[in-house]
C-alpha cells in the first residue's frame, strides 16, 4: 500500500461514455502511449481538474480490469443535482482528447486474496471498485458473490454487463421497487474464512458492519471503502505554526485545498478521509471530524485532524505544519 504523495501522470482522455443519465465513464491513456502503473482491484486514482474557478482533486476507483502494465485506466463519475464541483466539472467540461493529470494508483480497499470466499455488496456508484475486483477474483479462481443495489433501472450502471459476465454470481436489487440488500440474510450463512466488502452510501456500509458484528463475524473480515466528499461549512482560519502562515478556508473548499492554493503541499493521498495520510496535529481549535480514519476516541481527543475532509467549529485552528 503506497500512501505517500503519488507521482503525477499526464494523460489524455481517450473516451467519454454516458452510461446512464447521471453516470459517465472516462478512459485515460498516457500521452506517449507507454503503459500505466499496474494496480490491484480496489485501487483508486486522484484526478486533478484545473481551469475552473478553482482546482479540484477527487479520488475515483479504477474500474478497468487490473492487469500488468495496463494501457488505459477507466473511472466512472456520478453527477447529481447536488453534485460538488469536481463531479460537475468531469461531466460538463471534460471531453475526449483533453489533457489531464492523474495520480498513480493506491489501494485502500484490497481483496484479502488468501481468503477462499468473497462477498461483495455495492450500492449505486459504489459498484466501481468491484468491477475491477471481479476480474481479479475470477482470474485467481476464488469463490465470490456480488449483491448490487441501485435506485432504478436508469441508474443501474453496468447491470447488463455484470449480468452477462458474472450473472450466475450476482443478485440485483432495485430500491425504487422496494428491493433492498439484506445484509443479515446475506452474511448469516457463509462458510468459515469468508470476507465481506461493502462500497456505497454510508447507511449501507454501516448496516453491513452492524449485521456482521451481530452475527459474530470478526471485524477484520469486513472491509469498506467510502470516500467522503469534503463537505462545505462555515469559513475558518488555519494557522500553520511551523510554516508561519495563515490560510483562510472558504465555505466551499477543504482545509487541504486552501492550504494547497496557498502554495504548500502537505502529504496526502486519497483526499476522501480514508487513508490517514494527511493527518495533522492540532495545537489549538475545535474540530468537526468528517473522516472514516480516526477512531471515535481519537476524534474526541481533538488532537489531530484529517485536513482533506474535516473542518473547524472554532473560528481558528492551529496546526503543527
Amino acid at each position: 500500500m503506497i500512501l505517500s504523495q503519488q507521482a503525477k501522470i499526464p494523460v489524455r482522455v481517450t473516451g467519454v461514455e454516458r452510461v446512464t443519465p447521471s453516470i459517465k465513464t472516462f478512459t485515460f491513456e498516457r500521452e506517449d502511449s507507454a503503459p500505466l502503473p499496474s494496480f490491484s482491484g480496489g485501487s483508486h486514482i486522484v484526478v486533478e481538474m484545473r481551469g475552473g474557478e478553482r482546482t479540484y482533486r477527487n479520488p475515483y476507483s479504477l474500474m478497468s480490469p487490473p492487469e500488468d502494465y495496463p494501457s488505459a485506466y477507466q473511472i466512472s463519475v456520478r453527477c447529481d443535482d447536488q453534485g460538488r464541483g469536481g463531479a460537475q466539472y468531469m461531466h460538463e467540461r471534460v471531453r475526449e482528447g483533453d489533457e489531464m493529470t492523474i495520480s498513480g494508483p493506491a489501494n485502500l480497499f484490497p481483496l484479502t486474496v488468501t481468503a477462499p470466499r468473497h462477498v461483495l455488496i455495492a450500492g449505486g456508484i459504489g459498484i466501481t471498485p468491484f468491477l475491477a475486483q471481479l476480474h481479479e477474483l475470477r482470474q485467481r479462481g476464488l469463490a465470490y458473490e456480488l449483491h448490487y443495489q441501485y435506485r432504478d433501472a436508469e441508474g443501474a450502471a453496468f447491470r447488463d454487463r455484470l449480468a452477462a459476465r458474472f450473472g450466475d454470481q450476482t443478485r440485483f436489487y432495485e430500491s425504487g421497487r422496494d428491493q433492498y440488500v439484506d445484509p443479515t440474510a446475506i452474511l448469516a450463512d457463509q462458510p468459515l474464512g469468508t470476507h465481506a466488502y461493502v462500497c456505497g452510501p454510508a447507511g449501507l456500509t454501516q448496516a453491513v458492519h452492524e449485521a456482521a458484528a451481530e452475527l459474530g463475524w470478526p471485524a477484520r473480515n469486513v472491509h469498506s471503502e467510502e470516500f467522503a466528499a469534503p463537505p462545505p461549512g462555515k469559513p475558518f482560519k488555519v494557522v500553520l505554526e511551523r510554516s508561519q502562515r495563515e490560510v483562510e478556508v472558504p465555505a466551499n473548499a477543504s482545509a487541504l485545498e486552501a492550504i494547497e492554493e496557498a502554495g504548500i503541499q502537505p502529504s496526502c493521498s486519497c483526499r476522501g478521509g480514508s487513508c490517514g495520510q494527511c493527518e495533522q496535529t492540532v495545537l489549538e481549535g475545535d474540530i468537526d471530524h468528517n473522516d472514516h480514519f480516526l477512531s471515535d476516541e481519537a476524534k474526541a481527543r481533538n488532537s489531530s485532524m484529517m485536513i482533506c475532509v474535516s473542518r473547524a467549529r472554532s473560528d481558528r485552528v492551529v496546526l503543527d505544519l
Partner: peptide, 10 residues
C-alpha cells in the same frame, strides 16, 4: 466440526 461451520463461529 469446522468443515460444516459458518462465519460467526467462536
Amino acid at each position: 466440526v469446522l468443515r460444516d461451520a459458518r462465519m460467526g463461529t467462536r
